[in-house]
Write a protein that binds this DNA or RNA. Structure first.
Lengths: 223, 223
DNA sequence: GGAAGAAGTTGACCCGCCGTCACGTTCGCG
DNA sequence: CGCGAACGTGACGGCGGGTCAACTTCTTCC
């Protein structure tokens, strides 16, 4: 009650000194503190999930990794599932940007598929390296949630496929199944790559791209 | 304490009557009751997981779906994760049998791939129908655990791929990546199929098989 | 400058779940 | 029969989930 003083995160120094020397600069102290707290929770969550695994992690574990009180967690997220989704969303959003940029430069089906696949493999290799800092429960995450942002990645791929079809780069197939097949190859081959140590981006990309490219043209013989 | 009598599941009728008329037949009452209890827990777990979703389900929820006491659960499983794995293992084991039977009849690469894929799609359509009895949280399970039995399915596919290569049905490629790619297509196209309502086994199989077959032969141009 | 109120944080609190364990019951066997 | 092993039971300590009244800090408007 009195023993432990609550500490205003990162703001203690202000209380002695000019209260708001640069009041105009920070344009909303609250906004900044909210963003900082949210980020602190996300950072802690990423750390703790990587260390303990999703199932074993409790909201308390996450909040203990910050300077905040337990109740504060619920001002930002409804549950640990929601934090996890936020992390996934973040990854998905960043990847989608990479993917889109990559696809814009592609003029042939070959460069499109190869570039997209390389982007994906490079991306998951990076994520894996970040999340595996001395952790035991690593490997690809055991959970598969379809957050809006992840669906958006699927959509992005489907749109790219449709675009390729429209531009005559690919035969007029079921874009939905086609996107699914390509994603399936990327995911599964990517997992294998990570299991092998994660270094073989070139080999995995070459194999996957060849497989997908052949599949695309080959599946045309059915419809 | 006295209000609710513990009921020996399915064995109450014996206590009044001949204690062991067919003593030789059941050859171990304990064995049978153990098996029955284990199965009761698994059945309840399948129901409850389907109804509430994996995350929301507690061990208590599962045990409440049986006639057993909470402590009994831990005589059979260490955690809800372990029950879930047991369910997965069960599915994987059954599917592996189907898959192996299917593959034995195949003489050409075409029939091998097509048969295996149809078997998979048929299987997941069935599982989906069973697990979706009026549930909300259905769709493909949100969790992806690599139990030994699931790894065995992957191995089975890899072995089949290697066999096909050895018999000259497929080009000499990296069997590991090849199996992964085929599994990826099956999984992802299967998921799409389920999302579309689950009826289109023929269409999904035709598409997936064509994709994989083309991919197999096409990927040969790289190595 | 300062007061009023909005926004946000805190940590104690209740509830339900986890996993254990001492106890009671049932089964197998001599 | 009767004993010992095996098994089921449910109460119990501990802990995590989510809430909330009280408190602190920021903003706004005079």
């Amino acid at each position: 009650m009195a023993g432990i003083r609550p500490v205003w995160i990162g703001r203690v120094l202000d209380s002695d000194g000019a209260p708001s020397v640069n009041a105009a600069l920070d344009a909303g102290r609250r906004e900044r503190s909210k963003a900082a707290n949210r980020q602190a929770i996300l950072d802690a969550a990423r750390r703790v999930f990587a260390e303990l695994g999703y199932d074993a992690t409790s909201v308390r574990d996450i909040i203990r990794g910050t300077e905040l009180a337990s109740g504060t967690f619920y001002n930002y997220f409804k549950s640990k599932e929601e934090v996890f989704e936020a992390l996934q969303d973040d990854s998905a959003r960043r990847f989608r940007a990479v993917l889109r940029a990559q696809c814009e430069h592609a003029t042939t089906l070959d460069s499109l598929v190869r570039g997209a696949l390389r982007a994906y493999l490079w991306f998951i290799a990076g994520e894996h390296a970040v999340n595996a800092t001395g952790a035991v429960k690593s490997a690809p995450p055991p959970i598969r949630i379809d957050t809006p942002e992840i669906k958006a990645v699927f959509e992005e791929v489907r749109v790219q496929v449709e675009g390729a079809i429209a531009r005559g780069l690919a035969p007029p197939l079921d874009a939905d199944y086609l996107a699914a097949a390509a994603i399936g190859v990327a995911r599964e081959v990517g997992d294998r790559m990570l299991l092998r140590g994660g270094g073989d981006i070139d080999g995995a990309a070459a194999f996957g791209a060849a497989f997908i490219l052949a599949g695309v043209t080959g599946a045309a013989s059915v419809r």
